[in-house]
């Protein structure tokens, strides 16, 4: 008799769907994966819903409404392992830019009748609400890293995901440093690897979509940016995009925002 297949669930909170899509983008592996696990809850792909508990829950998106703050606790209770995928789930996402502004004013900018809308003042990562077993970075996550994380949890081992900076990936690819050779400001030195140095690969500076690397020296990088002519506001905005609420990036942006 066939052993029980582990149950996989995929949950969406405030997000663009891009990280869930990265799972569907595993064209060569998708059917093999569906054979190894029981896809028990994945609304974007299936209307069949299998009740929990789930062996592995992948969570995309940030918490930004009172309902979602409750829902993530239910998801945690129903899950043996909970892995967050992407910048929204691990750092609050681009919607965390509201954390630095007046949310009521944001509401009335977009909606004529703000009283119909229920939202929280801040967009926060999943780990602010419940314990998380692993955080996979990226806006969006990298497909290969996602498969590695799923395989690791199915095999009961820690995922092998590097925490060093994008600079290492540039060197590995033999790319000429855009900052040194072209004078293009780049967040690569403080950003976690995982994308494969995509931006330097097209000769632009990294914009930090994988969030802070391990022990990033953001202050030193900010000084190097100003030597290349970046204004304080430009430095602040560079740290304030898709991982704006990640501690290291948030702190560095706050040091520069008032110029």
């Amino acid at each position: 008799m066939r052993a029980r297949r582990p149950k996989l669930a995929v949950w969406k909170f405030a997000s663009c769907d891009g990280c869930q899509l990265s799972l569907l983008n595993c064209e060569d592996e998708l059917l093999a994966l569906a054979d190894r696990v029981e896809v028990a809850y994945f609304l974007e792909a299936s209307r069949a819903v299998v009740r929990g508990p789930y062996d592995l829950s992948l969570v995309e998106g940030s918490v930004s409404t009172p309902e979602d703050a409750d829902r993530i606790r239910q998801v945690r209770k129903a899950s043996r392992y909970l892995v967050t995928i992407g910048a929204c789930a691990t750092a609050g996402g681009v919607q965390a830019l509201r954390n630095f502004a007046d949310c009521q004013e944001f509401l009335s900018t977009v909606y004529a009748r703000p009283e119909f809308i229920r939202t929280l003042e801040r967009s926060t990562p999943i780990a602010d609400h419940v314990p998380v077993d692993f955080e996979l970075r990226g806006c969006p996550v990298d497909r290969a890293q996602l498969l590695e994380v799923i395989s690791a949890f199915l095999a009961g081992r820690r995922p092998r995901v590097a925490t060093h900076s994008v600079c290492v990936e540039c060197k590995r690819r033999g790319l000429v440093c855009v900052m040194v050779a072209q004078g293009t400001p780049c967040l690569g030195p403080v950003t976690q690897a995982g994308c494969g140095a995509l931006c330097p690969g097209v000769r632009r500076g990294c914009y930090g979509c994988f969030g802070p690397a391990e022990s990033p020296n953001t202050a030193s990088l900010a000084r190097a940016w100003s030597q290349l002519g970046a204004t304080a506001q430009e430095v602040a905005r560079a740290f304030r995009t898709f991982n704006a609420a990640a501690d290291a990036f948030r702190a560095e942006s706050e040091r520069h925002e008032r110029g």
Partner: peptide, 28 residues
């Protein structure tokens, strides 16, 4: 779906930044 306020958070950004910021409205 929780609102993410793109039209509000774009204000004050440089015109060159909208290309990468608005991409995040939709992963598809």
């Amino acid at each position: 779906e929780p609102p993410r306020f793109f039209e509000a958070l774009l204000r004050g950004r440089d015109f060159r930044e909208a290309v990468d910021i608005t991409a995040r409205i939709c992963g598809i």
